[in-house]
């Protein structure tokens, strides 16, 4: 198992776009240590901050994360990366496959534009988890994002496809959603701001938008199918759909084909 061990806190933000199991498998020890990861005029390389052990397998472990490690697992296509610690912004951005696990917290924009694979964050995620970065049309786009702790504001902003499971989320969860599913223990104020389509399932919520209207407490076959798909990821979230949850339709400021399910 290739192993990167952080020697000391990085003096600047590092860009890990080029550090993944597939890329490392084709490199010699020296070439891997010379991978440029710095983002300032220092010109830092991987070997400046990490001890590097390679073995060509497809699971990379980063022992000792840091909030300055940006784009960990970004554009990942296969294999797995496990970070024992925190990561910075854009965790798994644009990934198409594989598995990412972070035992600590993640910065903003985790899973932005990710079309496949699974991202697990054991701690908290920053703002815009599964959300769109500046000027991007979409946020999460097909991948699965599981956050065991809290997410910041604008969770799943402009998400287009895929699934987010989160314990707690801040304000404007599911803002500008195009499609996809978010299941949350609780969300903050104004969930689903400007959403066009998509599904939010919540156990509790803050202030609701005046542009969401209640359409009744419903027990639909579709909800049981959704619960079945959620259960392997989180039984607690699947249980939110038991009974007859209350359904709100919105956002009526747009085409209003989104839905917010509130647990009974």
């Amino acid at each position: 198992m290739p192993l990167l061990t952080l020697r000391e806190a990085p003096p600047e933000r590092l860009d890990f776009l080029a550090v993944n199991p597939l890329a490392l498998s084709g490199l010699s020890q020296g070439d891997a240590e010379r991978l440029v990861v710095g983002t300032t005029r220092r010109g830092l390389v991987l070997g400046d901050c990490f001890t590097v052990k390679l073995d060509g397998s497809d699971t990379l472990t980063i022992a000792g994360g840091h909030a300055r490690l940006d784009r960990v697992g970004a554009s990942l296509t296969e294999g797995a990366i496990r970070v024992e610690g925190d990561v910075g912004q854009r965790l798994g951005a644009g990934m198409t496959g594989g598995t990412l696990t972070v035992t600590g917290n993640a910065g903003p924009f985790a899973g932005s534009g990710a079309t496949g694979g699974t991202i697990r964050i054991e701690g908290d995620a920053g703002d815009h988890a599964g959300g769109a970065v500046h000027a991007a049309k979409v946020g999460l786009d097909g991948a699965t994002l599981v956050i065991r702790g809290s997410a910041g504001d604008c969770l799943g902003d402009s998400m287009r496809r895929g699934l987010i499971v989160v314990e707690r989320a801040g304000a404007f969860a599911g803002a500008r959603m195009i499609a996809g599913t978010i299941a949350a223990g609780t969300v903050g104020d104004h969930p689903g701001y400007g959403m066009r389509r998509g599904t939010l399932v919540v156990g509790g919520h803050g202030a609701l938008m005046p542009t969401f209207v209640e359409t009744g407490a419903l027990d639909l076959v579709y909800l049981r199918l959704l619960a079945k798909s959620l259960r392997p990821l989180s039984a607690r979230h699947a249980d939110l759909l038991s009974g007859a949850p209350k359904r709100y339709s919105g956002d009526l400021a747009t085409i209003g084909k989104g839905e917010l399910w509130v647990a009974a």
Binding site: D251, A253, T254
Partner: peptide
Amino acid sequence: VAIAHLRAHARGHL
């Protein structure tokens, strides 16, 4: 939120 509320009325949805 107020802008969204106004837009919903302008569209005739509310």
